Amino acid sequence: MNIKQYLDSTYLKTASQAGLSETENNIVVRNAIAEAISYGFKLIMIRPDKVALAKEMITKANSSLLIGTVIDFPKGTSAIEIKIKEANEAIADGADDLDFVCNYQAFKNGDVQLIKQEVLIATQIGLANNKTVKWIIEVAALNEKEIIQLSSLIKNVVISNFKEEDYTSVFVKSSTGFYKTQNNLPNGATIPTTIMMLENASPLPIKAAGGVKTYEEAIEMIRLGVKRIGTSSAKAIAKGENTTNKY
């Protein structure tokens, strides 16, 4: 198994979130991209304003590294028009994967029609441009019933509106890694939430993001059936080392 091809190496902090200047944070982003190229990871996951930089570096290195970015991050509460605008800009800059934050708050409030609309329209845009689309459902904000229902809803929208050959390009993803939980509870993928997603989103693939920090944890997720792992610990996982990174 080439575990590196499951890893979406992730750096999504803004300068202020990282406690750095813009210049310092840009250096961190450049280093993350260079590391992902060097280690042969599947993808580098970065903020939308860094996509063009990644494209430039990857092209210069003649690398096959994919570029992923987040849309309507981290809360997902923007109107579909905003999501579309951000997605089109990311596509123009060279993104390969578009990780949309689902409006999980609207879902919790019972607005199922809004979720169906944004999943349909945004997925259409991604697939029409030959991009991989991922829907972040933010498992830490949902109870078990809601995780099951939202995973199923996304699956049903995709199955009802797209061809079978498209299914592998539309993921359900666990987490942003930025959700604030109470009592220090996990804010990312766990074994129970991942199993629920796998059971209810199939045949759509699953991306486990947040909380996977060791080689053993990554292997366990892969054995469960996840196809991608989002982590800021990709280097440590690939080398079998421990890490203190939280995402």
Rank of each mutant, 00 (worst) to 15 (best):
S232M: 01
R228H: 05
L43S: 14
A201H: 08
A238R: 01
E241Q: 14
I206F: 08
W135Y: 14
A52L: 14
D97E: 15
V28E: 10
E35A: 13
Q105D: 14
K180H: 11
G188H: 04
G210L: 04
L198S: 11
K246P: 00
K227W: 00
D49T: 10
F178C: 06
N184W: 01
Q113G: 01
A79Q: 05
P205C: 05
K55W: 00
L198W: 08
T14W: 05
K131S: 07
G230I: 05
A201M: 03
G240W: 07
T23M: 08
D72T: 12
L224G: 08
P74Q: 10
I195N: 03
T176G: 07
L114T: 06
A87I: 06
V139K: 01
N2S: 14
T10G: 01
C102K: 02
K180D: 04
A189N: 06
I46L: 14
V51L: 11
M221W: 05
E165S: 13
V133N: 06
V119K: 04
T190C: 03
G19V: 10
Y215L: 14
I137E: 04
T176R: 11
T10E: 02
D72K: 12
S233T: 04
N184V: 00
V158W: 04
E81F: 05
A90R: 09
S64G: 01
V170C: 07
Q149P: 01
I147D: 08
